[in-house]
């Protein structure tokens, strides 16, 4: 008993001395998958935030070049960011030289703490959003996933990305594409060397899209434009990567269905709670995180659509 308690104390002391190495691997099982030459993705759980996945629900990625490693999204917490950096270190001796953040949602940028010695770039709208609501998002995630969030704060990206520009790292030429729709600022990155398109949360795959900050018309327009692009591999923000545009068409079809459904329900006089608890068609019921994500979307999108189905002021 005494020996057990003692070694427990030693373990605790070890954690206090090395919060990164030991604690991070305890929470996060980071297994990068090579999806193209020099290009790796760490796939997130197709789940909601919970205290078993510790917030690791989004995909993160990195590209290994002769001039250093480029990281795309940093995950949900400081410890995730540290675990990601350790995983990169097991694959290459190249240092991380650049981080890009796709958008200002907590599952994508709260690992920034582990990269605060590196330039972190994002669209101006993302920088503004992290500055405005980053701390609230971190606080909410603490409540949802608990201890794995310790030491996490909202690090504001320090470099603004200009849309349409190309950044070159070794052999890899990255086109930085500004979009909007999932949020007010969504960065997509097309590696023209490998043909890998990191679409961020513009694309969801086999997981219901989230809509808390969405502009559905803008989002659908971006999806249509992106389907017209040339790419070899598409990496969505959530779900498996594909050699085709399946995540783009699936996301577009779902959003179109959502708006049609809500418009029809509003014109039938349904209340929001009635809309929430309707059964979903098979195609959309089988996506991960349903029906929860659909119900969240009722809260986000139905009020405006419901109001537009009421006549202007009646006398």
């Amino acid at each position: 008993m005494i020996r057990g308690a003692l070694s427990g104390c030693l373990l605790l002391a070890g954690l206090l001395v090395m919060p990164g190495a030991m604690a991070a691997s305890r929470y996060y099982d980071i297994e990068p998958v090579e999806v193209a030459a020099d290009t790796y993705v760490v796939f997130g759980a197709q789940e909601n935030f919970n205290d078993a996945n510790h917030g690791a629900i989004a995909n993160t990625g990195f590209i290994v070049t002769d001039e250093g490693v480029v990281v795309i999204d940093t995950g949900p917490s400081r410890l995730y960011g540290q675990a990601l950096r350790e995983a990169i270190g097991r694959i290459t001796e190249q240092p991380v030289v650049q981080v890009y953040i796709s958008h200002a949602h907590p599952d994508h940028f709260l690992g920034n703490n582990a990269f605060d010695d590196v330039s972190i770039a994002a669209l101006p709208g993302t920088i503004d959003a992290v500055r405005a609501v980053g701390s609230d998002l971190a606080g909410n995630l603490y409540n949802l996933v608990g201890a794995a969030m310790r030491g996490t704060s909202a690090v504001v990206p320090d470099q603004a990305v200009e849309s349409g520009t190309t950044a070159t790292f070794g052999d890899h030429r990255l086109r930085l594409l500004a979009a909007a729709g999932h949020t007010a600022a969504d960065l997509m990155i097309l590696d023209t060397t490998t043909g890998v398109l990191f679409a961020g949360d513009i694309a969801f795959h086999d997981r219901a899209p989230t809509t808390p900050n969405a502009d559905i018309d803008a989002w659908r327009a971006v999806l249509a434009q992106t389907r017209a692009r040339e790419f070899a591999v598409l990496v969505p923000g959530h779900g498996p990567s594909t050699p085709d545009d399946a995540p783009l068409s699936q996301t577009g079809d779902y959003l179109a269905w959502l708006v049609d459904r809500f418009t029809q329900d509003a014109n039938d006089g349904m209340s929001a709670a009635e809309v929430m608890f309707q059964p979903l068609p098979e195609r959309w019921a089988r996506l991960a995180v349903q029906p929860g994500e659909y119900r969240r979307s009722v809260s986000h999108l139905y009020p405006a659509i419901e109001q537009s189905a009421l006549p202007e002021r009646t006398e």
């Binding site: 209340s271 929001a272 709670a273 009635e274 608890f277 119900r295 969240r296 809260s299 986000h300």
Partner: peptide, 9 residues
């Protein structure tokens, strides 16, 4: 989801 406006029927 929205603590200011939670739907109920």
């Amino acid at each position: 989801e929205d603590s200011l406006a939670t739907p109920v029927q």
